[in-house]
Amino acid sequence: MQVSTKFTIALHVLLAVKYFEKDNKLTSDFLSASIGSNPVIIRNIMSQLREAGIIDIKRGPGGMRITRDLKDISFLDIYKAVETNGQGELFNFHEKPNPNCPVGKRIYPVLDQSLLAVQEKFEEALQDHSLEELYERLD
């Protein structure tokens, strides 16, 4: 299992937004310079965070702001915003196991319960951490 860089980029975006909100206009170009990533990638992640209600983006001089207290934004909120593409599933099954194979025809139900338990523990762990704890460590 591997979580893509979108998750850590989203964390970086949100921390930078909070850190620089008073002194800088927060654009994708500004954030991409901090993150070391392409502004298009940053815009895509910003869009996902906006769709999840984590940030608000105003065109022009309005800039960007975080919509709620950092303590109220969990790692799970951010993960779901940028990683799951609305599906919410941590594990994806291969599409065409052989239905004539004794393992292939039963693999989905055999894996399903165990993988669901793993996902639940993973999500519980993400829920236990907030953006606030990261922000406090910046100083």
Results as ranks from 00 to 15, higher is better:
Leu115Pro: 05
Glu133Ala: 06
Ile42Trp: 03
Ser32Val: 15
Lys6Arg: 15
His12Ala: 03
Glu21Cys: 13
Asp29Tyr: 15
Gln48Val: 03
Lys18His: 10
Val40Ser: 15
Ala52Trp: 07
Lys18Thr: 03
Tyr135Phe: 05
Gln2Cys: 08
Gln113His: 07
Met64Val: 14
Ser130Thr: 14
Leu76Asn: 03
Leu14Asn: 05
Phe30Asp: 01
Gln48Asp: 13
Arg106Met: 06
Val118Glu: 01
Ala125Gln: 08
Gln87Phe: 11
Lys105Met: 00
Glu89Pro: 01
His129Tyr: 07
Ile107Lys: 00
Leu131Lys: 01
Asp72Ser: 05
Ile42Met: 04
Ser28Pro: 09
Ile107Glu: 03
Gln87Gly: 15
Ala52Phe: 13
Asp128Glu: 11
Leu138Lys: 01
Phe91Trp: 10
Pro99Lys: 00
Glu83Ala: 10
Pro39Gln: 10
Ser130Gln: 13
Gly88Trp: 11
Ala16Tyr: 09
Arg137Phe: 11
Gly63Ser: 14
Tyr108Val: 12
Leu26His: 08
Tyr79Leu: 11
Ile41Pro: 05
Leu134Phe: 12
Glu83Arg: 04
Gln87His: 09
Asp23Tyr: 14
Gln119Tyr: 06
Met1Asp: 07
Gly36Val: 06
Lys25Asn: 15
Ile45Trp: 06
Ala10Lys: 03
Leu11Arg: 00
Ala125Pro: 02
Gly36Trp: 14
Gly88Gln: 04
Ile9Asn: 07
Ile35Gln: 01
Leu90Gln: 03
Pro109Arg: 05
Glu123His: 13
Gln119Gly: 03
Glu95Tyr: 13
Ser4Ile: 07
Val17Gln: 10
Thr5Lys: 13
Pro102Cys: 01
Arg137His: 14
Ile45Leu: 07
Thr27Glu: 09
Leu116Trp: 08
Tyr79Gln: 02
His12Gly: 02
Ser74Gln: 09
Ser28Tyr: 03
Val40Asn: 11
Arg50Ile: 05
Asp112Pro: 01
Leu11Lys: 00
Glu123Val: 01
Ser32Ala: 15
Asn24Phe: 10
Phe91Cys: 04
Leu76Ile: 02
Val40Gln: 12
Asp29Thr: 13
Leu126Trp: 12
Val110Met: 13
Lys96Val: 09
Gln87Glu: 14
Gly60Thr: 04
Leu14His: 04
Phe91Gly: 08
Ala10His: 06
Ile73Arg: 02
Glu132Ser: 13
Gly36Ala: 05
Asn98Gly: 00
Ile9His: 13
Glu51Trp: 03
Ile35Asn: 03
Lys22Asp: 10
Ser47Phe: 08
Leu26Ala: 09
Leu126Pro: 08
Asp139His: 13
Glu51Met: 07
Pro97Asn: 01
Gln87Asn: 09
Gly62Phe: 12
Asp29Gly: 15
Ile35Leu: 05
Val118Arg: 03
Lys105Arg: 00
Lys58Trp: 08
Pro97Met: 00
Ser114Ile: 10
Glu136Asn: 07
Ala117Glu: 07
